[in-house]
């Protein structure tokens, strides 16, 4: 099996990119103390907007820009609900995911006059990169990719640098870790959380655009098909660290790309489709078990509640 060819690695990068954008956003939110699992809906929102605007304007980049703007606005629901009003972020996320599913399906009919799938001839997809043509390894890896794929990889590095090497990154980590302490030193916890949630929205917009204008050139109802949840699992696996998030997403991408290969050999698609989810879950369980064992030695009572990550942390209510 030609698993380790450059073409395979390129396929892994393509499969990973949308998930990586969403997971990076969610990881930053986790660092700021906001549990952001509305990724499925935000990806879908980005994917739909990108296709619709690309179709109307004829420009894929206009579609990307619109996807970023729309999804950022959409993520305001989470910012308001879970940060400002302190509603349960899980329920807000379930609502947002369902809203995006319904609304994109609805608008697909109303605005684009299509049911199920919208893939007209003439829909502008994102162009493939050609700057790497002729360069040995890079050319093979990135030649057939859109600009968003290397951007996702760069953003993972950038997010890591931001968190660890800048003042605002340091403050953000403090906000998520101990909001009262951050507030007592004059950092506005809600402002940091708001900005991070909106930033995650923008990233999901990019992820959605890559999915619908990069990986394919089409919008299909519910086309995210669980990628948002895989991103959530990746974030958990990586404990919110951007570079590890990158690793986890590549793992998912590898499982998906490998699944496509196996289909080529005649394995039914229904079974290979399941692979990414199972791989993600198994790795997640294995890593959590290790963390868990360490924790139990220190504090048995904390270990009981460790299965319930603090959803959103807030500064102490001032009387």
């Amino acid at each position: 099996m030609d698993v380790f060819t450059l073409a395979f690695v390129a396929a892994v990068l393509t499969s990973s990119a949308p998930v990586l954008f969403a997971a990076l956003g969610s990881a930053l939110c986790g660092r700021a103390g906001v549990f952001n699992i509305a990724l499925e809906g935000q990806l879908l929102c980005g994917a739909f907007t990108a296709v619709a605007v690309s179709w109307w304007t004829g420009s894929a980049w206009a579609g990307v820009a619109a996807a970023v703007v729309t999804t950022t606005v959409f993520s305001g629901v989470l910012a308001l609900g879970a940060v400002s009003w302190r509603a349960d972020p899980i329920i807000v996320a379930v609502g947002m995911n369902l809203l995006a599913l319904g609304l994109t399906g609805f608008l697909l009919r109303e605005l684009l006059d299509a049911t199920g799938t919208f893939a007209p001839t003439g829909l502008a997809g994102l162009p493939d990169l050609d700057v790497f043509d002729g360069i040995p390894v890079l050319g093979a890896l990135l030649g057939g990719q859109t600009l968003l794929v290397p951007l996702a990889l760069l953003l993972a590095v950038a997010a890591s640098l931001w968190l660890n090497r800048t003042s605002t990154g340091l403050r953000l980590r403090g906000v998520g870790e101990h909001p009262e302490a951050a507030a007592s030193l004059g950092v506005s916890v809600t402002r940091y959380q708001h900005v991070t949630v909106l930033l995650a929205g923008a990233l999901c917009g990019l992820g959605g655009a890559q999915l619908s204008l990069g990986n394919v050139t089409a919008f299909t109802e519910n086309m995210t098909a669980g990628r948002g949840w895989v991103a959530v699992a990746a974030v958990m696996l990586a404990a919110n660290r951007p570079l590890l998030v990158l690793g986890a997403c590549l793992l998912f991408g590898a499982a998906e790309a490998w699944g496509f290969r196996l289909q080529g050999v005649g394995l039914p698609q229904q079974l290979t489709d399941a692979a990414p989810y199972l791989v993600t879950l198994i790795v997640l369980v294995a890593s959590r078990l290790r963390v868990r064992r360490r924790l139990r030695d220190v504090d048995p009572v904390a270990a009981v509640s460790a299965a319930h990550p603090e959803a959103v942390v807030h500064p102490e209510e001032t009387r």
């Binding site: 090497r165 003042s167 340091l170 403090g174 870790e177 009262e180 302490a181 950092v187």
Partner: peptide, 27 residues
Amino acid sequence: FRLFGSLTVAENVVYRAEPGRWGVYDR
């Protein structure tokens, strides 16, 4: 105490009064 457990001593001490230029934290 109101400390950030996962941050270093120095990071805790200078939090929100960090040395550095252009937003880069000078460790």
